[in-house]
């Protein structure tokens, strides 16, 4: 039953994809009328005018270009021409660094806040004000103080991924079932051991859910951040290709951003499942 449902869903997905590619292909096919013009003028006008070709690349163009990229993901021809693999690696490294720093700060801090009603009340106003600030709003301040565009991008990732993790850790720690705490208390388990043997495993699913939300946000933000700071990364690549008017490359980058984002999410989802135990 479930396997046949999965099979049918898969078939529908393939049909939808094929339909989308088909429509895309038809919509971008060369149909426009060609005008006769002097060869010099034609050169300036490009293919759109001379061969009736649409400015929007079709699926076949994108496919061919993607294949080219996949064959040589790591070439490096100077600052404005690097393989997609290298650009993605830069972005992933930035997200990874900022995100890991956020984990290191958010989880211990969340533990403290969750376990101490005093800290929770004292820090609440700060968190409430800082949380809704768009991470990109920090960018000028980061550039001014840090003076390094790459580190500034990492800082922006750090600041945007810290909130969901912090809030989920606080919530997870504060809402550990009272009976489990009481079990530890009747066994005279000390605070540190209790934090690691009862509170951490009990709060782990909530914490990991926060981490999953954070990685999603970090991946959304890195593209925008790299467009601003420039230099390297998939966000810069998108902006650079837009300036080159290479819509094909922009589409390929969009596709890859989606795939990587999905993979990151799946990894965290798997971790979440690993620490979730039904009662």
């Amino acid at each position: 039953m479930t396997s046949s449902l999965r099979l049918r869903a898969g078939l529908v997905s393939i049909v939808l994809l094929a339909a989308f590619l088909g429509i895309w292909h038809i919509a971008t096919r060369s149909t426009g009328a060609t005008t006769t013009m002097s060869p010099e003028y034609a050169k300036l006008m490009g293919l759109t005018a001379t061969q009736g070709k649409s400015a929007m690349p079709g699926p076949l163009d994108v496919g061919a270009k993607l294949w080219e990229h996949l064959k040589r993901p790591f070439y490096d021809n100077g600052p404005n021409d690097k393989g997609l693999g290298i650009q993605l690696a830069y972005s992933i490294a930035r997200v990874g660094t900022g995100y890991l720093l956020a984990v290191l700060v958010a989880i211990p801090l969340g533990f403290l806040i969750g376990m101490s009603p005093l800290l929770s009340k004292a820090l609440d106003p700060f968190i409430q004000v800082l949380k809704p600030i768009s991470p990109l709003a920090w960018m000028p301040l980061a550039l001014y103080t840090i003076k390094d565009s790459s580190v500034s991008a990492i800082f922006v990732i750090f600041i945007c991924s810290i909130w969901p993790m912090l809030l989920n850790t606080v919530f997870g720690v504060a809402s550990v079932r009272k009976e489990w705490i009481n079990v530890a208390r009747t066994l005279e388990v000390g605070t540190i051991r209790r934090a690691f043997t009862v509170i951490l495993p009990a709060a782990a699913p909530t914490i990991l859910t926060g981490m999953r939300i954070s990685i999603g946000i970090a991946w959304l933000v890195i593209v925008a951040a790299e467009m601003l700071v420039g230099g390297t990364g998939i966000g810069y690549f998108v902006w650079n290709e837009w300036n080159n008017l290479s819509i094909t490359n922009v589409i390929i980058a969009i596709l890859l951003i989606g795939v990587i984002g999905m993979l990151l999410d799946q990894i965290l989802a798997r971790f979440t499942r690993m620490v979730t135990f039904p009662e």
Binding site: R177, E179, W180, N182, V183, T186, L187, P201, P278
Partner: peptide, 17 residues
């Protein structure tokens, strides 16, 4: 609390992990 006084909880309170 004390290890001399063990509690059996109504909701068993086992650690699910």
């Amino acid at each position: 609390t004390s290890l001399d006084r063990a509690v059996i909880f109504q909701s068993h309170a086992l650690l699910p992990w």
